[in-house]
Amino acid sequence: MTIKTVYKRPKLLKERLFHYCPGCGHSVIHKLLCEVIDEMNLKERIVCIPPPGCSVFAYNYLDIDMAESAHGRGAAVATGIKRVSPETIVFTYQGDGDLSAIGTAETIHAANREEKITAIFVNNAVYGMTGGQMAPTTMIGQKTTTSPYGREVNKEGYPLKMSEILSVVEGTVYIERTAVNSPKNIKKTKKAISKAFQVQIDNLGFSMVEILSPCPTNWKMSPIESWHWVDKEMVKEFPLGVIKDRIKVKKC
């Protein structure tokens, strides 16, 4: 009897234990990136810009070229690389603190210049590595270490919707919001990532995948509770789906 392999550990994932907490979405996204990069045969021409944050150690896991950026500056660094080397596929890997707080200017302007880069935007509604402080994407009422009584609108404002904001920027070509909290959503995320990379390969412009990602430790939940919480709470504020798709228009 022949034995068929249905799922194998991705080739581009280094043999190393993740430092992420049990149930974390980062490692799921890392897995997907490895699969997509391998399937699209991009290893020889891709550079990742990881951020400060939990994923600062992404270089320990993804067997591709990486250049770490300062907090929030991913889009500017990616711009520098891409302009020098247009044939390189450049993507940033950024958290919500990185992309939607300190790096808003860099992100919006890179998008507006129609830089041919891709942002993988991991939204887990908190600053993870620093210990679960409030982020611009924190839910209204959500308790964090710096909003211990819950986020209050009149003091701390509303969850910032970067995908929607970027969708009105002319230079963005493809923006999709997905999640990594169920088999179905994980599959959709993988598709979205390959689509975003394809936009860059076709030289069409700026693409971004916003991924809602569970952070059980800082949400103070069990892994499975945190995966459910994405559906129960986050999706209400951050609806999933394709937010902008100008691929056909750009190809004409």
């Binding site: 500017a76 020098v84 860099e106 302007h109």
Partner: peptide
């Protein structure tokens, strides 16, 4: 800030 980080990117390349 963006300008110097673009320099950083270009230098990486």
């Amino acid at each position: 800030i963006s300008a110097i980080n673009m320099v950083y990117g270009a230098s990486i390349a």
